[in-house]
Amino acid sequence: MFTSFTKAFTNLFKTPQTIDYPATPIEKDKEHRGLIEYGEEACIYCLKCEKACPPGAILFVPVENPPENEKNKKGLKYHYNPYLCIYCSECVRACPKPDEALWQSNKKSQPATKEDRVNESWFELERLKKQTD
């Protein structure tokens, strides 16, 4: 009992362990698993990342103005949902060019609001993909 007593007394003179987040920003380690980032010029549109993703957070959907790339035969565009992603980096491991076309950063995802229409826009993309498959 006396160790707890003295420890409670000496804690009064030390700084508390609490970090005032988000008023004080926290520096994340550079190996922290964060959002996935995409380099469009090096992509070869093999679609291996889409097959490997467990929750299905990467979709390649045909659109009217596809990005200019000679490997893009079917006019597809890359879409990524940071709110479905579980940051497991299976897609990075499945990609044939892991540091040029697809890599993992250490940023955290930002909260979304109702005006961003996160769920509705993603469901539209999924329906579009099912029609063209």
Partner: peptide, 18 residues
């Protein structure tokens, strides 16, 4: 918190390791 720090350094996340 000491243990959570080393888990984050080793695997990239504090609770779900994957």
């Amino acid at each position: 918190e000491l243990v959570m720090e080393i888990q984050e350094l080793l695997t990239g996340n504090r609770v779900q390791f994957d």
